[in-house]
Simulated assay, not measured.
Amino acid sequence: MGRTRTERDDAGRPPAPPAPLASFARFVLFGGGVGVASSAAVALLAQLMPWAVANALITVASTVLCTELHARFTFGAGRRAGWRQHLLSAGSASAAYAVTTVAMLILHVVRPSAGMLSEQAVYLSASGLAGIGRFLVLRLYVFAIGRNQATGRAKGPAPLQKANVTMSPSIPAPALPRDLPLRRTMADSRSS
């Protein structure tokens, strides 16, 4: 199975990752877009079930979607996320889920009759803070392998390169005498 040009450059290396600012802008665009849609979905689902359950369901769905978007566009991998990235991203999303859930629980303790506008403000603020931490985890850890290979910082032995061997014309190669047998057969070795 061949790789596409977007996955490898002319020298066979993965493409260089986008600069940190470009990655962050893409992270905000994709993650923030999905986050705003998730916020609305949580508010709608929370009318049918407990808020924490609605948040958990939406967090799972949005994490899968965001991990794919981040793998393909945000962090320069140019291909689908693998199981490793999904699992590690799920870990960082679990931490974000905990932050948003705790923020909402605190809001409901402090202000039990908080309206949807207050809930959205708290949820989006907590999501934004958790998102910054998530960006750092995803950029520096989850999607860092392709970047390390692209910059030559990958762990393990360096790839073997072809050695250039030259013969000096001033030193002649030794000549073999014509009567020297070059190969002995099994019959010759048994008779000795």
Rank of each mutant, 00 (worst) to 15 (best):
M1Y: 09
M1F: 08
M1T: 09
G2N: 12
T6Q: 12
T6I: 09
A11G: 05
R13I: 00
A16G: 02
A16D: 06
P17N: 05
A19C: 02
A19W: 09
A19K: 07
F24C: 06
A25D: 02
F27T: 01
F27G: 02
V28P: 00
L29S: 13
F30G: 03
F30A: 03
G31D: 05
G31T: 04
G32L: 08
G32V: 03
G33F: 10
V34F: 08
V36F: 12
S38T: 09
S38D: 05
S39N: 12
A43E: 06
A43Y: 07
L45M: 12
Q47F: 03
L48T: 07
P50E: 07
W51R: 11
W51C: 00
A52W: 15
A54P: 00
A54R: 12
A54W: 12
L57R: 04
I58T: 15
T59G: 14
A61I: 07
A61F: 09
A61E: 02
L65E: 01
C66D: 03
T67C: 10
H70S: 05
H70D: 09
F73D: 02
F73C: 02
F75S: 01
A77Y: 09
R80P: 00
G82Q: 10
R84S: 04
R84I: 02
L87P: 01
L87A: 15
A90D: 01
A90P: 00
G91V: 11
G91Q: 10
G91A: 12
A93E: 02
S94G: 15
A95E: 01
V99G: 02
T100Q: 15
T100W: 01
T101Y: 09
L107K: 14
L107S: 08
V109K: 14
R111D: 07
A114R: 10
L117P: 00
Q120L: 15
Q120V: 06
A121E: 02
S125M: 04
S125R: 04
S127D: 03
L129G: 15
A130F: 11
G131K: 04
I132K: 04
I132D: 00
G133Q: 08
L136I: 11
L136V: 14
V137D: 01
V137W: 14
L138R: 03
R139K: 13
A144V: 02
A144C: 01
I145C: 00
I145N: 07
I145M: 01
G146P: 00
R147E: 11
A150Q: 08
T151M: 09
T151C: 05
A154F: 06
A154P: 00
K155S: 07
P157R: 15
A158E: 14
P159L: 15
N164A: 06
V165L: 14
P169G: 04
P169Y: 03
S170E: 13
I171Q: 11
A173E: 11
A173M: 13
P174L: 15
A175K: 15
P177C: 05
D179A: 15
L180W: 14
P181H: 07
P181S: 10
L182D: 11
T185L: 11
D188S: 14
S191C: 04
S192L: 13
